[in-house]
Amino acid sequence: MRVAAPILATILTVVVGSIFFASLGHDPLATLYAFFVEPLSSMNGLSEWLLKASPLILIACGLAVGFRANVWNIGAEGQFTMGAIAASGVGLFWPNPESVLLLPLMFVAGMGAGMAWAAIPAFLRARMNTNEILVTLMMTYIATLFLSYLVHGPWRDPAGFNYPQTALLPAAALLQSFDPAYRLNSSIFITVAAVILMWLFTDRSFLGYKMSVSGAAPLAARYAGFRESAAVWIGLLAGGAAAGIAGMAEAAGPLGQLSPQISPGYGFAAIIVAFIGRLNAFGIVLGGLLMSLLFLGGEGVQMTLGLPSAMTRIFQGFLLFFLLAADFFIFYRVRLVRPIRDAHALETAR
């Protein structure tokens, strides 16, 4: 049944989507083709597909470690931003801009900053029992404002007409793409490593098992002597590290500089990806590829068929809605319960 849910959801989406597109006067088959096939029919399309999916998968892997233990890190967007800031800071201000150590240092800085940003809610939750959902979410706004302060103020490009953006990162601080004609770069290997690590941790390690238990049955976990605070720390730090690395890869990859907005919502979209993937490493890979394809397909139908972006978003909503609804109806049975009309009838029925 767990396998049937996504298939059912896909069929429902295709059917409802076809009706939707037909009612707007577009050939449903051509639209679906432009949505799902055309974006992947060229090398550039494949490169863009993986480039967009990579940060989503990376962040979702980190988040899922926490989600499995009921540690709700909603602030990956902020950890992503801090990772990008720290990595760009190293890239921009390291004394030797041609050093081969630049990228490794940026990697460490990005990961460290993401973890540090996640450590604050982890400490507050572990020691003072604050709600990590609220704290992580609000820390996102602080990170965004901090970025805004830097690019409007001290880090502003001196040669940029006072516009709020930093100078471009030096060449040694940029992840090289595999082929100059395409944008996909070596950060994809980081994502692959993260997926494997996450699978090893959740499916093959005792610590991962303990975290799953504290998520599924907190009381049983406490009874068995598993410390809740350990789950909180590991869950949040894993998410922070993954998001920080994703921020570094975005700054050193497609962006190449900082501006007031650097994330197209990767930190939030990764939450959806984690749940589409059912918090499982390989499910997350599929979820990330799907989200990325939905995004490219949405642009594709705008470009080839002239559909407005609002329509493509509605269609994307269909798919996510059916996916989650199919899950719900597989795990829960709907029973109609008649209200009891009068007590006498109840008595005689007995």
């Binding site: 497609p254 962006l255 907005q261 197209p264 470009m303 407005p308 972006s309």
Partner: peptide, 15 residues
């Protein structure tokens, strides 16, 4: 050909 709602630099480059 008009593409709307593209703000982020990393998406704009692809478009």
């Amino acid at each position: 050909t008009v593409i709307d709602n593209i703000f982020m630099p990393q998406d704009a480059e692809r478009i």
